[in-house]
Nucleic acid binder design. Sequence first.
DNA 1: CTGAAAGCGCTTACAG
DNA 2: CTGAAAGCGCTTACAG
Lengths: 345, 345
Amino acid sequence: MIQLKEKMKKISLKTIANELGVSSATVSLVLNGKDKNGRVSKELSRKILDKAAELNYVPNTLAKSLKVGKSRTIGLIIADISNLFFGALALHIQSFAQQKGYTVIIGNTNEKLNEMEHIINFLLARQVDGFIITPTEKSQNLINKLTVSNIPLVLVDRTFPELKVNSVTINNYEISYKATEELIKKGCRNIGVISYKQDHFHVNERKRGAVEALKNSGIFNPNYIAEVRYDFLKEDVSAAIEKMVNENIRIDGIFFTTNSISINGVKSLINNNIIIQKDIQLMCFDENDAFYILPYTIPFIKQPIKEMAEKAIDLLIEQIDDNNNELIKVIQDAELVTNEKIVDQ
Amino acid sequence: MIQLKEKMKKISLKTIANELGVSSATVSLVLNGKDKNGRVSKELSRKILDKAAELNYVPNTLAKSLKVGKSRTIGLIIADISNLFFGALALHIQSFAQQKGYTVIIGNTNEKLNEMEHIINFLLARQVDGFIITPTEKSQNLINKLTVSNIPLVLVDRTFPELKVNSVTINNYEISYKATEELIKKGCRNIGVISYKQDHFHVNERKRGAVEALKNSGIFNPNYIAEVRYDFLKEDVSAAIEKMVNENIRIDGIFFTTNSISINGVKSLINNNIIIQKDIQLMCFDENDAFYILPYTIPFIKQPIKEMAEKAIDLLIEQIDDNNNELIKVIQDAELVTNEKIVDQ
DNA sequence: CTGAAAGCGCTTACAG
DNA sequence: CTGAAAGCGCTTACAG
């Protein structure tokens, strides 16, 4: 094969058809394995396959998508891709999508509503067949527009319970309740809760679960409940920890409602010379690679990330294929991982 | 607007053209802001814009790409997306690409050659305009095929020095030499080096830099040099650390050549009850979130990830736009971060 | 068993 | 100032 410095001319179906003196329809059929009913003779079929290989034919997916009206592409909109939980979620979604023959285009909103709108429009123009979204705060209208237009859509991790939209989430309230009980079982009586100050249903459910558990055990103390701002995470967590540590009666346990809060919380505790799991028992949300490095283990709530990813992809593809209009809200169970040596992911 | 349960019919250029009784050519021109020479009257222009907004017109990028022969999409092929270094690299590449109006499709090879081939073909069919690749071992032929076909391409982080291919890498040898000298300056005299057993030029350059520094200081000891396998990282690092720690003369410093080795090395040291930065001084490659959590700081080599991403995108887009045939190998300087309090990323 | 033709939604010379 | 027409590379009824 001679190698030209200039751009080689593209090999299309037509090129193959012309070289073989057949129609491009026949070539298309053979190359797509659609000559079921023995439409094309074995011999011709062989010749077409060989020629395609010889010419190094690469099909043009764009043209195919344009013709059939499906791109086999899905848009994945993530709120904060630098967060390890979302990173893992994206990884699994991509991997399951690939298994099903779909390409994923990832967009990152950085928790900004206008970014989310921009990305949705961008992906719509790219003709994605559907969306998997971890919605930002106050994006109800945006989500609603998509559902009204009947665009296949699944929310994951977060959802708006008031909207009729498919979702995959976990049992945030129940698992947080249970996790807090675990702290109580360990003997903690002055338990702090650090959560975000925001509108996200899932995070507020976690907080509610923790608070409810404390109340039901008669040890709820509003001074031990803190809310931090996403944009001032580090400072606010620091302040909250210092306050809790310096209360008249020092806290002996903390429940963190997200992994970003957990990481900053642990740093803060170390900076305050608190001996973790001795002075203060912790309970975190999500597995965290940073914790592996500590000489002790920290209990955490493990979300079924892989299963969430799989379910989200399944739901979405069902909608794409069947135009399934049924509303499905999946709630999966998270798991408490305590004491035992933390397993590698 | 009435909301139908059925799929709404798509709004195309033609829809707008028909409703307004003009040609779709004119609509295209206006919507793309290409009526420079006052081709279209202000009034008609206005009407077209309004109608597009009213109908909620979304252009079909697929059709446009097919027509103009450019997809404004680039394929990013990453060797191991779960590695934080690559994660950050991917994030920045995506962000720069977006700024330039390009979409990124990410593929993950898991360091497997056949995965890499598969992903390349897949992305080629998707008509990507070019590739940014962190190549796996032994992928020279694959890379060569792409360059021979004149497909815009930039290798990043890793490269094959023998190939004529654009690349963005760092000064692996020099910075590793310097980093090792730093350990020596601190008083270490029995310094271990843990690296991968593989063919990657960049990692071997790091090892070579460290070894050379040790030799030039007259303190090189082959017993302190270990190579670990990628597929048995944890076990091999563990074994290497234990061996080094239990040598007749215990090591007092270690240089890790990658961040994955660093993380496992630190865990191993903690398991062996070594007091890091007191019993043994460390030097790692790459910033690592896990280290933030430790009560002391670990010196590390900071790669200019953002700059690498930017340069890679710039080089690639130059090639795409100008069909620039010039060969460019960029080598950027990494930075030594010592002692000082580690800054937040 | 196979081919001719239409059409997906665009853009871009070309003609007027 | 504007329109008609061709064509990007496919797939899919339809006709034979």
